[in-house]
Amino acid sequence: MFGFILNRLVSLIPILFVVVTVVFFLIHIVPGNPVDIMLGDNATALNRQALEAQLGLDKPLGQQYMDYLLGLVQGDLGQSIYKQQSVVKMIIRSFPATLELTLGSLFLSILIGLPLGVLSAIKSHEKLDHVFSGLSMLGMSLPAYFLGPLLIWIFALSLDLFPVSERGGIGHLILPSLSLAIPLGSVLLRMVRASVMEVKSQDYIRTARSKGLSWKGMYFKHALKNAMIPILTTVGLQLGALLTGTVITETIFDWPGIGTLLFNSIQQRDYPLIQGCILFVAVVYVLVNFITDIAYSYFNPKVRITG
């Protein structure tokens, strides 16, 4: 197991390196001069030079890259142009809100997917199973940017049950989480059903059944336990998808997290802040997938040998 983790850690290095490098080059693919775009037409030559120096754009490319890497190692992602604050500090301030939304959505999607998936497998090929199958297919096809406004229209504006936007108590969390949890819960439901169905047909389950094990014992003690491996993997991969999905959901609900920070920084063409946010989310995404991978192989030793 230790060797496997070490092996995976080594393969993490080129991935992180590519992520870091891609983010570095983002400001260099801006058509024209990024300083002109940021300052607009009214800027004086002096202003331009000052900003160029602040961003380090006046140095040779190789030097810029080295400075960027050096800053990164020291936890320095530069200054926001508009707020004149440290990008790292702004990200750290926004992260708890994003984490809250992500975990809330994950919790809700498990709450939807797990019990309904098991139920679907219990009633496999019966009417209820078909209904869930259709509903989950529909749920999978509901993007958060449609669900979000729809939920706001129905539950916040028309019925006045929940607040329209912004962060606050648990009431504020429900609608944004739900808009992410319905599609992901639907994916999870299908995954749980397929995993439980697969385990259900295994020989050892049939043996246990023929020895007189009740169906409840079968589903909850044996089937679900063994189905946990693919379920865990799905949840882990979903966490990464959730994290990038929050960019849209946060803008809809004015949720003060990384997504809103990124969206606003794009609107203001605050390039250092854009780069910082992208880098942060991408690195967290890569790390979450890495941890999922490790967890998967921990529960499924077969992977360690072949992988």
Partner: peptide, 15 residues
Amino acid sequence: AFPGFLLALALVAML
């Protein structure tokens, strides 16, 4: 390993 949506978002934001 790269989040596709985020990369597309970043590229279009810049280009």
